[in-house]
Nucleic acid binder design. Structure first.
Length: 423
RNA sequence: GUGGGUGUAGCUCAGCUGGUGGUAGCACCUGGUUGUGGCCCAGGAGGUCGUGGGUUCAAGUCCCAUCACUCACCCCA
């Protein structure tokens, strides 16, 4: 029986990796433009960290975490909790009052795999800690939008506010009254949810529930003074820099720590896994985890979803051509080629050769597949005369070149030719 | 956790109402020039037909189980 990767776990093989690199490089470039610093955390954390931050009653904590029960440690299901733990542990708030951090890496949730949803998946996660300023909310959404635009991914930005511990309880009561009035019309899930987390009834996908909830009160009409002000400033900021968004009063979050601003980048091209990125404000979370009272906001982008969207666009993958392929004919020529190729590589060129003693034709084919700019053909008789043939693969021109005694000197003369081609 | 669909070569797939696994395409190797790539042509290699049972003279094909993949519910990035 062959050993295969676990269900919901995937290899990213050559041909696919290129798209991942593109996503990652574009993201790093943009994070850098917005002055974010990278932070890397371990994958394993105390289980307690996640249950405290994400919420005991959430689906993630209740049934989706990979936990070593005997040791009370868990593979992170998301990045924010770990990042805040590191932020608190190292006292990063002392170094800088406002920290702008990002991290990229794998997360683990034991869900049933599906398109755009794996058990090991990868997120790019961005957090700003230490500022409650609505401008920061705006800036983060603008950054997300800019990143997706540069990747050429078409999304819409949906926005909502969840209020704060001041105003949410009041809204919750209003909503509960509304729900109770039409409880019988709701699906079983929603009946359950109406007691555990009534806000979640708002984003049920069941058409009947949607209909019932259509006229539900909006939290946006029940925000307290400061939350309301904050939210209008966020919106004004978005308008000022022409970031297109729409309000979605039904959007809620699956993690308990969110407050005030929440947002999602939604695509129409991925089936039911429509959110390519999502996040929001979590002003009480640092304190919950034992740090100083610190406001924060962040969001995460799902990398496999981004890669899927790029794959659907069928972009041509630009491969970097090999600079020089050295084709040796016969044992002596191969012995000559090996140190030469090594010297070329030391000089920073992409060089290749065949070690298997294959025919020239076969070696030319290999050179072609590698998109070599040049092939140096070294035959045994020419080698004795201190000569070799240099072929330009694009123009098909060939010229005899003198092989000097010192490999390095010869390599340098080849390097000049290749560099000319590159520039 | 709950449903539906699908498992045949590295990949994409033919294979009818059971009768010896496909000259199928892509990819790979060799040859078509004593030592010259892309195109074309010829040849070659590559499979316990997901796995385990059952029915049958005979199973890739029918039945059962199981595993995997996949889509949807759920949840979420």
């Amino acid at each position: 029986m062959k050993i295969k990767a676990l269900n919901g776990f995937k290899d990213i093989i050559p041909g696919e990796v290129e798209l991942w690199l593109k996503v990652e490089q574009t993201a790093r470039n943009i994070f850098n433009r917005f002055n974010f610093s990278e932070i890397r955390m371990p994958i394993l954390e105390k289980t307690d960290l996640f249950s405290r931050s994400i919420g005991e009653a959430t689906d993630i904590v209740e049934k989706e975490m990979y936990t070593f029960v005997d040791k009370q440690i868990t593979m992170r299901p998301e990045a924010t909790a770990s990042l805040l733990r590191a932020y608190i542990q190292h006292g990063l708030y002392v170094q800088k009052p406002i920290q702008r951090l990002f991290t990229i890496g794998p997360m683990f949730r034991h869900e049933r795999p599906q398109k755009g949803r794996l058990r090991q998946f990868h997120q790019m996660d961005v957090e700003v800690l230490g500022s409650a300023n609505p401008r920061v909310d705006t800036e983060l959404m603008a950054m997300g939008a800019m990143l997706l635009e540069e990747l050429g991914i078409d999304v819409s930005l949906e926005l909502n506010s969840l209020g704060c511990p001041e105003c949410r309880p009041g809204f919750r009561k209003t909503l509960l009254t509304f729900i109770d009035d039409r409880r019988d019309e709701l699906c079983d899930d929603c009946k359950r949810r109406s007691t555990s987390n009534p806000l979640r009834v708002l984003d049920c996908k069941n058409p009947r529930c949607r209909e019932q909830v259509e006229e539900a009160p909006s939290i946006l009409d029940h925000l307290c003074g400061s939350c309301g002000e904050h939210f209008s400033s966020v919106q004004k900021g978005l308008q000022d820099i022409n970031v297109v968004y729409s309000l979605n009063k039904f959007m809620v979050r699956g993690l308990d720590y969110y407050t005030r601003t929440t947002f999602e980048f939604i695509t129409a091209d991925l089936g039911s896994q429509a959110a390519v990125g999502a996040g929001g404000r979590y002003d009480g979370l640092v304190e919950t985890l034992g740090g100083p009272k610190t406001p924060g906001i962040g969001f995460a982008l799902g990398m496999e979803r981004l890669v899927l969207l790029l794959q659907q666009k069928e972009l041509e993958t630009e491969s970097t051509g090999c600079d020089m392929f050295v084709a040796g004919l016969g044992e002596k020529a191969i012995d000559f080629a090996f140190p030469l190729v090594h010297a070329l590589r030391q000089m920073g060129l992409q060089a290749a050769m065949d070690h298997e003693g294959r025919s020239l034709k076969s070696q030319m084919k290999q050179a072609n597949k590698l998109q070599s700019g040049y092939v140096l053909i070294v035959g045994e008789s020419e080698l004795e005369q201190g000569q070799a043939v240099l072929r330009n693969m694009e123009t098909q021109e060939q010229q005899d070149v003198k092989i000097s005694d010192a490999t390095d000197t010869f390599a340098r003369s080849l390097q000049e030719k290749c560099t000319l081609r590159i520039s």
